[in-house]
């Protein structure tokens, strides 16, 4: 067990955990932030995506010991993010979600995409969102919502 000082959604958090513990489980179990989801544990599905130091990150494979001082931002903070809020609104107005379980990760990826690429093409969307799995198959609407958010932000 080791104590780590984390910055999560602009708040300082101290956690005492095994250094090998993935960030995902620290968020979900120690910090009680369950918006970030467990889907596969091997970075195959993207349901656990958060931003670490601005980089969209699969938190299920990132041991807490490798987080360092980089700030962690999760889905819970997206409503207060300029782009995050627009993306969430686009998701709602396009009625994207079905079961909804993958959508935290989808939104975290979409926000990262739009921050870097304000006017994404279909190819940009397919490449950047290519690692986020949705078993309900909401991809058509995810694509629409990203484009709608881009228009809104443009």
């Amino acid at each position: 067990m080791e104590t780590f000082k984390l910055t999560v959604n602009c708040q300082q958090k101290d956690v005492t955990v095994d250094p090998s513990t993935p960030l995902l489980w620290v968020l979900r179990e120690d910090l009680k932030m369950s918006g970030t989801k467990y889907g596969c544990g091997i970075a195959a599905c993207g349901a656990c995506t958060v931003h670490v130091g601005g980089v969209p990150t699969r938190s299920c494979v990132l041991p807490i010991s490798l987080v360092g001082e980089r700030p962690v931002v999760t889905i819970e903070a997206m409503s207060n993010d300029t782009i995050g809020r627009v993306v969430e609104e686009a998701w709602e107005s396009e009625d994207v979600v079905q079961c909804g379980y993958c959508q935290s990760g989808q939104i975290m990826s979409a926000v990262a995409l739009l921050k870097a690429t304000p006017k994404p093409t279909d190819k940009d969307i397919e490449e950047s969102m290519g690692g986020n799995l949705c078993r309900c198959g909401t991809y058509v609407r995810i694509r629409q919502a990203i484009k709608a958010a881009a228009r809104q932000l443009g």
């Binding site: 090998s20 513990t21 993935p22 544990g41 091997i42 970075a43 995506t49 980089v55 969209p56 990150t57 699969r58 299920c60 494979v61 990132l62 041991p63 490798l66 990826s109 979409a110 990262a112 995409l113 921050k115 870097a116 690429t117 940009d124 490449e127 950047s128 969102m129 290519g130 690692g131």
Partner: peptide, 18 residues
Amino acid sequence: VPALQCATCHRQANADST
């Protein structure tokens, strides 16, 4: 690419536990 970078999974050291 922006939302699927190498660093999305690969960081400064091996993550042997995962």
